[in-house]
Design a protein around this nucleic acid. Structure first.
Lengths: 251, 251
DNA sequence: CGTAATTTGTGAACGCATTCACAAGCGCGT
DNA sequence: ACGCGCTTGTGAATGCGTTCACAAATTACG
């Protein structure tokens, strides 16, 4: 899905790259890590961190796969993309693997995150402890509502949206989180992109148009429920496909 | 990515079903709608609803695909799984398509949702307007903290977790949202499953083990940032793969 | 009525992801 | 030292999802 079946752009700009000879070399390298794998690395890291805290120092692919909820062959293949960090006949060294995963995910330093939109959801995100413990630091809060600007939240002052560009610069923002209403999201994204931000996590229920250089992931809460709803309905009717014949137009 | 690469179980219990003759018929039907397609239907519905509100009554696959951020061939194939609702040479009737999508997603009636865990994130979810406008009704709030039980939130009284089974029954809960700390999530999931809930949206950063009959989707906020972080790092170093040689063990 | 302009629906090709299955490597006991 | 048991790493097979490319269907218009 995946997947989160999500809006991505990564290597989208990769052209056919046909050579005159017909040979096409892997110019950029061996496509290091597949997207599907990257999406699972975070889970592996979380599970391994817990094991490390508990004192486990070696784990087999079967055990780790079970804890992460995946097939063990897939886990091994995923890890093999990072290099060879296991020992045959033994397993993986937990601490070592944690370090390598953190390094691979770019969590060597706590990345500075800006949160745009401090409404309902934004306030919750600002207070979410999981960010801090897993490699991120919320470095700035921005909002357009004059009633919210200037207030304190979790030790940070909410700043006016007009300061966006200045904040991105001064706080060395590497990732921005959009938690504004849908109507404001595109403009915020445009300004973030123009200011040089190249990674956006979007909670607003809108499709964002951004340059190829910007990586966008979206989280659509209602959509998640709708997907579950689809499967619920499916379970309810074993195999009736043409039940939906007589239905009016009232939405 | 991904698909948001998410934890799913759907038709996982489908066995090889080998017949003695070697023929294997599609016993359950033509696998109506692919998972990847379902995950996009919610987006199409949202985009179409906006178009409908604005007064658009016909849309081509190119236009709709652009608005939804996907390839038009994919859009057509997705919609073709629901049946043939377009008109060649013309396009799709917006209103009709909205109705069919809503019907397909099982949104005919507002589904009752229970929210377990009314902390930081839970409160935000309880107040998220997007649920109500997109087919869901939060019908119950549950929490284990005595300080929160009994308080009012968005017109609902927070009830004690001990009432979980009773609430699922009386409110006809079809989907549950887990927004508890990770440490409590598995037990809550167990009780939900035992109470007959077959769809769970999990915000707790833990892998849930549930029976095959239960459909789980997870949203891991920190993981989303970590995935973005990976790509950020990738952009930062054009093609240096063996830079990570000398690194101590300090985590 | 016939022809041109559109746009859908879909078979086929392609590519990526997952799973299988086993050879290669490692540690332990004797 | 040597063989046995265990576990990784990976080539091959399989399956799923996306994209291509075009025939079929429909409208517009002369």
């Amino acid at each position: 899905m995946t997947g989160q079946p999500h809006g991505r752009k990564h290597l989208a700009a990769r052209r056919p790259a046909v050579g005159l000879t017909g040979m096409d070399l892997p110019v950029v390298g061996p496509k290091a890590v597949p997207d599907a794998t990257v999406a699972r690395l975070a889970t592996y890291l979380r599970v391994l961190s817990v094991m490390d805290d508990v004192g486990v120092d070696t784990v087999s692919s079967d055990e780790l796969a079970a804890a992460a909820g995946v097939n063990s062959a897939m886990l091994r293949k995923d890890l093999s993309h990072l290099g060879s960090y296991g020992v045959r006949g033994v397993g993986y060294a937990v601490r070592t693997l944690v370090d390598h995963l953190a390094s691979t995910l770019g969590l060597g330093v706590h990345r500075a995150v800006a949160l745009i939109g401090v409404g309902n959801l934004g306030q919750a995100l600002a207070g979410y402890a999981g960010f801090g413990s897993r490699g991120f630091r919320i470095a700035a809060l921005l909002d357009a509502d004059p009633n919210r600007v200037g207030t304190m939240l979790r030790g940070l002052t909410v700043r006016d949206i007009s300061e966006l560009e200045a904040v991105v610069e001064s706080e060395q923002i590497s990732i921005a989180v959009i938690a504004t209403p849908a109507s404001a999201a595109q403009e915020v994204a445009d300004r973030l992109a123009a200011a040089g931000v190249t990674a956006i996590l979007n909670f607003a229920p809108t499709v964002l148009a951004v340059p190829d250089t910007v990586d966008v992931r979206k989280v659509d809460l209602a959509a998640e429920l709708q997907i579950l709803s689809f499967h619920e309905q499916r379970k309810a009717r074993p195999a009736a496909a043409e039940v939906r014949a007589a239905e009016g137009g009232a939405r």
